[in-house]
Amino acid sequence: MAEEAAFILLVEDDPDISAIAVMALHLDPNLTVTSMRTGADALHHLQHAPKPDLILTDNNLPDMEGVALARAIRRAMSEPPPIAFFTSSVRAVDIGRYAAAGAVGTIAKPFDPIGLAAQVQVLLRSTLA
Rank of each mutant, 00 (worst) to 15 (best):
P29F: 02
D53H: 09
L61W: 09
S35T: 12
L43N: 08
Q47P: 11
P52Y: 01
T57G: 10
N30F: 10
D41W: 08
H45W: 15
P50H: 11
A49F: 00
D53P: 10
D28F: 01
P52L: 02
N59W: 09
V33P: 12
H48M: 04
I55G: 02
T32D: 04
L31Y: 06
K51M: 07
A42N: 06
P50D: 13
A40N: 12
P52K: 04
Q47C: 12
I55P: 01
R37K: 13
D58N: 10
D58V: 07
T57W: 07
H48E: 10
D58G: 11
L31A: 00
D41P: 02
L54Q: 05
L46I: 06
V33Q: 13
H44W: 01
S35D: 15
P52W: 00
T57V: 06
S35H: 15
P50W: 01
N60D: 14
M36R: 15
G39S: 05
L31E: 06
D53R: 02
T38M: 10
K51R: 13
K51W: 00
L31R: 00
P29K: 01
T34F: 03
R37Q: 13
L56S: 02
H44L: 06
P62D: 03
T57D: 08
T34S: 09
S35W: 12
D58E: 03
P29G: 02
A42D: 07
N60I: 04
H48F: 12
L56P: 03
L43K: 10
D41T: 04
V33Y: 06
P52M: 00
P62S: 03
T38N: 08
H48P: 13
A49M: 07
I55D: 02
N30V: 03
P62G: 10
Q47D: 15
L46M: 13
P29I: 00
L46Q: 03
T34N: 02
H44D: 10
L56R: 02
P50I: 13
T38H: 07
P52T: 05
L61S: 03
Q47E: 15
V33D: 08
L56N: 03
R37L: 09
L46N: 08
L54V: 07
P50L: 14
T32E: 12
A40E: 15
H45T: 04
V33S: 13
L54W: 00
T32W: 05
S35L: 10
L43M: 15
H45V: 04
P29A: 02
A40D: 15
L54N: 09
N60L: 14
N59E: 10
G39N: 08
A40P: 02
P50T: 11
R37W: 05
D58L: 13
V33L: 12
A40Q: 15
P52G: 08
T34L: 02
A49S: 09
L56G: 01
K51Y: 00
D28G: 00
K51C: 04
L46S: 05
T38D: 05
G39A: 05
L43A: 11
N30Y: 14
N30W: 07
S35C: 11
T32K: 14
L61E: 02
L61G: 06
P50N: 15
N59D: 15
P62H: 12
M36N: 03
D28I: 03
